[in-house]
């Protein structure tokens, strides 16, 4: 979470003046279920990346490198769409 500002220091009318600032708004604590990615079972088809509504599948050089747990809300779409399911992506209960 960002440091919260006082009412005298925020733009009036609740407007957002900074483009793309949703990256600083962490939504990871909304999760009740958590996707677990297993590198050894992943074929890097990127279907999870295509379907993730929150841009939380981290990809580098065309390959999945992990999950952005700061923003993943635990919707489970990635695990449902994953063609290899239990071998590559599985949902577990958030501890």
């Amino acid at each position: 979470m960002n440091e919260l500002k006082g009412y005298k220091d925020i733009p009036i009318g609740g407007i957002i003046t900074e483009a793309g600032n949703s990256v600083t708004y962490k939504t990871g604590d909304w999760r009740s279920q958590k996707p677990i990615w297993k590198e050894e079972g992943c074929v890097h088809c990127l279907i999870c990346w295509v379907f993730c509504p929150d841009d939380s599948i981290k990809v580098e050089d065309g390959k999945v490198i992990g999950i952005d747990y700061d923003h993943c809300k635990g919707c489970g779409i990635c695990a449902r769409e994953c063609p290899r399911k239990e071998r590559a992506l599985q949902m577990v209960k958030e501890s």
């Binding site: 979470m1 009412y7 609740g14 407007i15």
Partner: peptide, 23 residues
């Protein structure tokens, strides 16, 4: 100077925005 109008504000900022309005 691009802006977004009418975004979500929950427990974190709604109070501050209303306090601004009252002031």
């Amino acid at each position: 100077n691009p802006i977004a109008v009418g975004p979500l504000q929950l427990q974190d900022y709604y109070t501050e925005t209303k306090a601004q309005e009252a002031e």
